[in-house]
Design a protein around this nucleic acid. Structure first.
Lengths: 181, 181
DNA sequence: CAGATATATATTGATCCGATATATGATGAT
DNA sequence: ATCATCATATATCGGATCAATATATATCTG
């Protein structure tokens, strides 16, 4: 799934500028699913424009740089449906945190404990935020589904770290003692 | 976390060729954490060699291309520890499946149901594989921890899809009926 | 009033990824 | 017996992606 499809998908919810697309990917439901940076969005929008899948209206603003609002064309809507209809590829995960846990025995117990605590705190914060948000207000069933999915996963992660975190800290302690002898 | 660090990490478990590093990232515990392709591994090994963090022994074989076995140097081990000691960045997830669920209302109920069934089957297969594997045989605590973490997440995903999958299918059905009228 | 944050677009260099090329042994199917 | 496929093994290329940076200004905060 390339950035072009993501842009089409965001635009299917309504017209938006590149900056707004980025914001939605950072803050909204997309955050848990598929982040993209400016370096991908702007070139993607350019190509979509070339291919006639979106249009732009360049509205100059005083002071600020002119805002370029992109809109889906009928061809763009069809291209989006085509892309979404193909079977999804595998999920890709990349976790620096888990790589560190994997090699816990190479690190000090203090470091591991620190990483674990931070991660737990982060997860608890995110869970609280997601529980507090008025998900009943979400416009589509898809959004509520994905929101619930994300929440369930974060809760499972939090529970696992709470229940099993001590194992990796303990292992690191043992290997430290062994190294000291 | 770049490919260079991943290569160093794999090599810290023992000498290996580029091909073997790839295999470990595909099959082993790394699979759930951080996949890498040949297009990243070979250039990364070249740079590590330049920087004196690994050594190679080029052992020619009859028929097959000669096998290049890479080994960590003391400097390489230090570089690995340095990299692992820095605080981990955010996890990055990219799920084509969830993007499709997010826009379920644009797709047909049949398609959504198909995607859901496939994903459920995939998850159940993976859970079965992970439960059957003799994780007691895993050499390090880190590996067992990460294995257990992965399993817990997959189980949470499976449970959520089983309990809430019908919601997205239902929504798609309703929007189809509305479109037909 | 200074500094930080938010709005807004855009580029660049480094890295990453999927596809492809090359070469052969082993296994399995017809 | 022969054909196909898979596993071993290294490597590159073009396109995609990412983090950092540049530019410009309004608004909020202390």
């Amino acid at each position: 799934m390339d950035t072009k499809t993501i842009c089409l998908a965001v635009l299917s919810r309504g017209a938006a500028s590149g900056y707004e697309i980025k914001k939605m990917c950072e803050e909204g439901v997309f955050h848990h699913i598929h982040e993209v940076g400016f370096g991908s969005i702007y070139p993607a929008l350019g190509k979509l424009l070339e291919d006639g899948l979106v249009t732009v209206t360049d509205t100059p603003q005083e002071g600020r740089p002119s805002k370029k609002v992109y809109r889906l064309t009928p061809a763009g809507r069809i291209a989006l449906l085509d892309a979404l209809s193909t079977p999804p590829g595998q999920d890709r995960v990349r976790s620096e945190f888990l790589v560190r846990m994997l090699f816990a025995e190479l690190l000090g117990a203090r470091t591991i404990e620190d990483f674990l605590d931070n991660r737990l705190q982060f997860l608890q914060q995110r869970i609280a935020d997601m529980e507090n948000c008025e998900c009943g207000e979400m416009p589509t069933v898809g959004e509520r589904f994905v929101h619930g999915f994300g929440l369930a996963i974060y809760q499972a992660m939090e529970a696992y770290l709470r229940e099993h975190g001590h194992e990796v800290v303990g292992a690191s302690l043992l290997s430290e003692r062994a190294a000291a002898e």
